[in-house]
Design a protein around this nucleic acid. Structure first.
Length: 339
DNA sequence: AAATCGTGGTC
DNA sequence: TGACCAAGATT
């Protein structure tokens, strides 16, 4: 950068003149700002907006969310993905309720110790809500900085991200919250991954990559590994009381969400009967196929209807199913039963 | 340090 | 169509 003060002034002036009207910019409530940052993790602004509105309606203050039950939170989060975010946020908010008298700490060390608060969310909330002098380095900022400084390091590496964060904090102006948002906004609107609008860029004269004609070569990122393909048979197990078997997923992937019993395709019905402890009648009704793409997996699911006269604790009345949180993956195949 | 964790949109 | 991307954190 040629001149830091010149750079900061240009960037902040551009930000103020082009500021988008986003719901979380209408509030100064640290709890609302924190909630928005948790939702925005790896998620586009346009996707977050309706979820944010729903949450501040259903859980208007920190105590309301802390006192809510996890099932209702997961149901309201349904479809947003990365479901551990809301479970971590729930735990963190409860800790604020118990330890900090329901007041979000205006203190980086205290705040960073909370569940789900990493380098980005910590910096973003502390700077935007309290104007503490910390950088908020997200994917936008990494891209902008790589181009400004003609930085060819692999931006997916944690060590590089930490270094970029320190570089920014060395030049951070007193308006830290606005500066952080301006840098992210620049990345989102002008300095985009493909076909960046350099002609419109308020800091074009500070950009080394633009000078060298290297904008489209940056940032450097190692490419993602290929996805693992998994094949499941998914079963609609119905009893004679109008109920269907649905159970809560364990583990880290979709943990807490409800699912139809699913088994690797070469699992026999006898094995499933043994595992569930109920006799199963297999009329060979195939409801259809679904492909669902995750970040690191692809599921290929085949749906089948089974009947049983046995008793099991995981039966749910068909009318109650819609009240339970279910992943998009499972919703796609569940819909086949209604057709 | 590298793998894992969702979903929807784009080209 | 497949690969990439989006206000990243955790283990």
């Amino acid at each position: 950068m040629l001149n830091i003060s010149d750079f900061n002034n240009n960037l902040l002036a551009w930000y103020q003149a082009n500021k988008r009207d986003l719901p979380w910019r209408r509030t100064s409530d640290p709890y609302h700002i924190w909630l928005s940052e948790v939702m925005l993790q790896q998620t586009q602004v346009i996707t977050v907006i309706p979820y944010f509105e729903k949450f501040i309606t259903n859980y208007p203050d920190l105590d309301a969310l802390a006192d809510a039950d996890e099932g209702s939170l997961l149901k309201d989060w349904e479809g947003l993905g990365y479901y551990n975010r809301i479970r971590n946020f729930h735990a963190a908010v409860k800790e604020v309720q118990n330890t900090y008298d329901s007041t979000v700490p205006d203190d980086p060390d205290a705040f960073f110790s909370l569940k789900g608060v990493g380098p980005y969310i910590g910096g973003a909330v502390q700077s935007i809500a309290f104007n503490n002098l910390l950088a908020a380095v997200d994917g936008n900022v990494l891209r902008v900085m790589a181009r400004l400084n003609l930085d060819y390091r692999d931006m997916t590496k944690a060590s590089v991200q930490k270094s970029v964060k320190q570089d920014i904090e060395a030049v951070l102006p007193l308006e830290a919250g606005d500066f952080n948002q301006a840098l992210m906004e620049l990345g989102a609107v002008i300095c985009t991954p493909r076909t960046p609008k350099c002609i419109m860029c308020p800091v074009q004269q500070h950009c080394e990559a633009y000078k060298e004609g290297q904008v489209s070569e940056l940032p450097v990122k190692k490419r993602a590994k290929s996805k693992k393909e998994i094949y499941y048979n998914v079963y609609f197990i119905l009893n004679d009381k109008g109920e269907i078997m649905l159970r809560k997923q364990e583990g880290t992937l979709l943990g807490g969400m409800y699912e139809l019993p699913k088994y690797d395709i070469d699992t026999s019905i006898e094995t499933i009967e043994e595992e569930l402890g109920v006799p199963l009648d297999h009329p060979n009704i195939h409801t259809g196929s679904v492909k669902h793409v995750f970040t690191h997996q692809v599921w290929y699911m085949e749906g089948y209807v089974l009947y049983t006269k046995g008793a099991h604790e995981d039966f749910v009345p068909r009318a109650e199913v819609a009240k339970l949180p279910m992943s998009r993956a499972m919703q796609k195949i569940y819909r086949q039963l209604e057709m």
